[in-house]
Amino acid sequence: MAEDSIKLIANNKKAFHDYFIEEKYEAGISLAGTEVKSLRQGKCSIKEAWVSIDKGEAYICGMNISPYEKGNIFNKDPLRVRKLLLHKTEIRKLDQASQVQGYTLVPLEVYFKRGKVKVQIGLAKGKKLYDKRETTAKRDQQREAMRDYKVSLR
């Protein structure tokens, strides 16, 4: 196995559609044992999740980790608020940046890195409707150009 092997559990494609991602940070996440087992099975959703900072601590809210089938009484609430593990300086920097109008913190990916569960969070600025249309138009143009290029090679 590679030194920095990463196994993706969940990603948030909608975040890239709805926001401009300015900066990315990697954070650990505080979990119970049955939650980790459920994540190993890939049962996680971060589509509606967000990151909040309260009293110098970072938390991820709205992240859904399905209960582990064999977990019985040890299972936790699937939508509970979970603590993110970041350095104090990073938390302060993120808190100041998220106070600016139009900026928010969103989770982008959840993955295993060296056996530990990590969350990639992004400092994001909301897109307007015309920005979303522009992004879609650019993607369609690139797709069309690649299609034309493939046809010209034949």
Rank of each mutant, 00 (worst) to 15 (best):
R40G: 04
L8H: 07
K150L: 08
E134K: 10
R80T: 06
L85A: 01
L108G: 05
E35N: 04
Y25G: 03
V106Q: 01
K127N: 08
S45E: 04
S38D: 09
D54A: 02
T34G: 02
S98W: 00
A124H: 04
S45G: 01
R40N: 10
E3K: 08
L129V: 14
M1E: 07
R114P: 01
V81S: 03
K116W: 14
A49C: 01
Y68S: 00
L79H: 12
K116A: 14
K24N: 10
L86K: 05
I6L: 13
I60G: 00
K14W: 07
Q141K: 10
I53D: 06
E134P: 06
V100M: 05
R154P: 10
Q141D: 12
W50A: 00
E23A: 13
K127Q: 10
H87F: 09
D131T: 05
T34P: 09
E109W: 04
K150N: 09
V81C: 01
K70A: 14
L85P: 01
L123Q: 03
V151D: 15
E134S: 13
H17S: 11
L123T: 04
A15S: 08
R114D: 04
A10G: 00
K55W: 04
L129W: 14
Q141T: 13
M146H: 09
I29C: 05
L94H: 11
F74P: 00
T89D: 14
C61S: 10
N75A: 03
S45H: 04
M1D: 10
E144Q: 12
K13T: 14
R147D: 03
L85K: 02
Y25F: 14
Q120F: 07
Y68G: 06
I121P: 02
D95H: 07
K37G: 13
Q96I: 13
M146L: 10
N72D: 14
R154N: 15
F20V: 07
A58Q: 05
Y25R: 10
A10I: 02
E57Q: 03
Y68M: 00
E109S: 01
K24L: 09
S45M: 01
C44F: 05
E90A: 15
K88G: 04
A97Q: 11
D95R: 04
R92F: 11
F16A: 06
M1F: 05
L153I: 07
L31E: 13
